[in-house]
């Protein structure tokens, strides 16, 4: 028994030293390890293919990237700080928010501003009434300038130390829609120190709720469980980002079965950040 154990230990030791040796190959000079937030409903491999295709089609002169996926912004930030990745890919508004920490700087690369995602709400497919109401309210808000005002208040002017509160309308007797917030993506989706959800997406939805005469209930949920929660009726609306059609790509690359998107209400370009040198 002892001999077998000793043999196993020796094997393990050999294996471990072997791994350490092969990992040490230095990356080539023009290769960057890039961190991205994983999308909900596609495999990481498919996202990588799409990313490569996008870069090729849009004819971007981006450095050769090895993409690594993270569950959310905080883990991605930790990846950057521990040098697991060299750069992270985030939306411009998130990049601006992050610059408040004083630790990061953006990678100058003009080609990247061509890449952009649109933000919308995702609802269940059989919930056509809610989708129609959302679309109508978004169109109204676009035409009467409310949307621009919300963008200014909650994104352009929002400082990490001074995030405006969102007034949640309370209408007596109105039906309630449940919204899943993750608190993972400031300034779009975050939770204030006192535990109340805030951010642009929430403000947007509060305004819509006021217009369509429904109450909203904000439910804090882990981002990985949002699709399951939506599909099983535990929540009715989640926030979603889609790649727009512009770059010869379908907008619905990661659209899950049985989910319908509202009209996009905000569009933002992508920026890459790295640790300040």
């Amino acid at each position: 028994m002892k001999k077998i154990f000793a043999l196993l230990m020796v094997c393990a030791l050999v294996l471990m030293t072997g791994c350490g040796g092969s990992d040490k190959t230095p990356p080539s000079a023009d290769e960057t390890k890039l961190g991205m937030i994983a999308h909900l409903n596609t495999t990481e491999q498919k996202m990588k293919e799409l990313y490569d295709e996008l870069v090729k089609k849009a004819d971007l002169k981006v450095a050769l990237n090895t993409v690594k996926f993270f569950d959310n912004l905080s883990t991605m930030q930790m990846g950057l700080e521990s040098n697991d990745v060299n750069e992270i890919s985030v939306y411009s508004c998130v990049a601006n928010y992050l610059s408040g920490a004083g630790k990061y700087e953006s990678v100058p690369d003009n080609a990247l501003s061509k890449l952009s995602d649109s933000f919308c709400f995702a609802v269940r497919k059989d919930d056509t009434e809610l989708k129609a109401q959302l679309d109508k309210a978004i169109d109204e808000m676009k035409s009467d300038g409310t949307l621009d005002k919300l963008v200014k208040d909650y994104i352009t002017d929002a400082e990490p130390d001074n995030i405006p509160r969102v007034e949640i309308p309370m209408i007596d007797g109105a039906p309630t829609i449940k919204v899943g917030v993750t608190g993972d993506l400031p300034p779009l989706d975050l939770v204030l120190p006192d535990g109340t959800p805030a951010g642009f997406n929430t403000a947007m939805l509060a305004e819509i709720a006021k217009r369509i005469g429904r109450n909203i209930e904000l439910v804090n949920i882990d981002s990985g469980a949002r699709a399951a929660a939506l599909a099983s009726n535990q929540i009715d609306v989640i926030f979603w980002a889609v790649v727009p059609n512009g770059n010869n790509l379908p907008s619905e690359i990661d659209k899950p079965e049985g989910v319908e998107f509202s009209t996009p209400y905000f569009k933002d370009s992508v920026k890459h950040l790295k640790i300040k040198s």
Binding site: L73, L98, G180, D184, L190, D222, I235
Partner: peptide, 27 residues
């Protein structure tokens, strides 16, 4: 339990980490 819409200690810590942009210290 954050996966089933409960705001427990871990969920609170994650929210704070995202908002303050200091995941290392918060965690």
């Amino acid at each position: 339990v954050g996966y089933v819409t409960i705001t427990d200690l871990t969920r609170v810590i994650n929210n704070i980490a995202s908002r303050t942009m200091q995941p290392m210290i918060t965690i």
